[in-house]
Design a protein around this nucleic acid. Sequence first.
DNA 1: TCTTGATTTAAACGAACGTTTGATTAAAAT
DNA 2: ATTTTAATCAAACGTTCGTTTAAATCAAGA
Lengths: 231, 231
Amino acid sequence: MAKDTKDIILDTAEKLFAKQGFNNTSLRNITTEADVNLASVNYHFGSKDALIQKLFERRIIPMNEQRISKLEQLEQKYGDHIALENLIDAFMEPAMELSRDTQKGGALFIKLLGRTYTDPSSELHDAIRQLYAPAIERFRDAFARVLPELTPDELYWRMHFMVGLLAYLMAGTDMMRLIASCKLCDPLDTDALIARARMFLVAGMQAPVIEQPDNTDQNESTTRRVDSVAG
Amino acid sequence: MAKDTKDIILDTAEKLFAKQGFNNTSLRNITTEADVNLASVNYHFGSKDALIQKLFERRIIPMNEQRISKLEQLEQKYGDHIALENLIDAFMEPAMELSRDTQKGGALFIKLLGRTYTDPSSELHDAIRQLYAPAIERFRDAFARVLPELTPDELYWRMHFMVGLLAYLMAGTDMMRLIASCKLCDPLDTDALIARARMFLVAGMQAPVIEQPDNTDQNESTTRRVDSVAG
DNA sequence: TCTTGATTTAAACGAACGTTTGATTAAAAT
DNA sequence: ATTTTAATCAAACGTTCGTTTAAATCAAGA
């Protein structure tokens, strides 16, 4: 079964955008690689920007639907007593599942998405934000129930931190690779990455809350040590 | 005192690159804004890429020297018993200090740097990595002493998470802005941001270590709750 | 079979890009 | 005063870009 031109263009564009970025990938680059005519992009999508928009819709909408679905499963199962760990999982998993899909291009899209988070192009940001809004709001409420000690502001910032870390991980640009000590670490081992990021995020989300952020030098009072236990 | 052409170009390029990205900022855009001749970029720097390279060197080298300097001060003061919080501060502060410099363009550069972390352009990545290498290695050793319970692998990943979160925060693209509940949060309040990110990172860095990352459903055993205490 | 609408195609459009050139000006050295 | 070097300038170079056009091809429906 041969996919139609529209899907071929989307798949090829996804691949090349993820590899090279939006501006460094021309329509000629895409159409040559996809073995379709140059004009077919503008015929089927209208413009390069519209192609990019469709590309994000195709992936983000199902991904966030999956997030909400997982959240609803948790709510049905545990009511208001969802474990923070599972809540974070419900948010991480759909993205990481895409990340494992090296066959149909999901992994490429996730890289692209992560990079777009820190891109300057504002129009695309607005579009992505709108695609994210429903899922983010649902999860904010869920986090608020699981972490009742956090003020709305604190919760906002911590979700901000969580989303930011995930964005960086999705982008897959490993700035730490320069450290010789860890050449053995496989940054492509998604499952290990998820497990470790989850622990990090769980701890971060339930970090102690401080009132006055005016400490600039040694003050151990605000630092609370967590025992490091295996298993 | 009038700055010379070279610095004017660097400052203007920094500003425009931060606003619009590399590919969306042309040399004509820069030279027009800087009120210098178009050819002067290639005369003084050789090429657009070389200009970008110089731009990063100008900021990153002093910033990382400052990081190492702060680390050495801590080592001199506390030997091997540096508080994790202060270690993270020593790494965060020089970047955030630049972020506060809205006068001389440091804030713009930090945004640019954060975005570059997740950019696809590989040549620039390698250059940045080389500029970072010495500071990263020093801090890795320091973290290893402060967090002796972490294996080298674990430490590597957690520093990866820390650097990633900071990169996202530096980029300043607030994907969470869509949440209506927190319109009051000022994302430009750098000091509050630092304080909150510090707490988050301190908790994340000393999260419990798990051996087997095979839990996909409800298992509260690995989740360890930290009391949330003000002050 | 003829027609109609949807797709594909080759070719061209104008605009914007990074870079280069050769002349011109400014400053410094002899 | 003359030469030499550095810097600036307007203009053009050759490419590449996203987009458009108009003809050609294809697939049914009448």
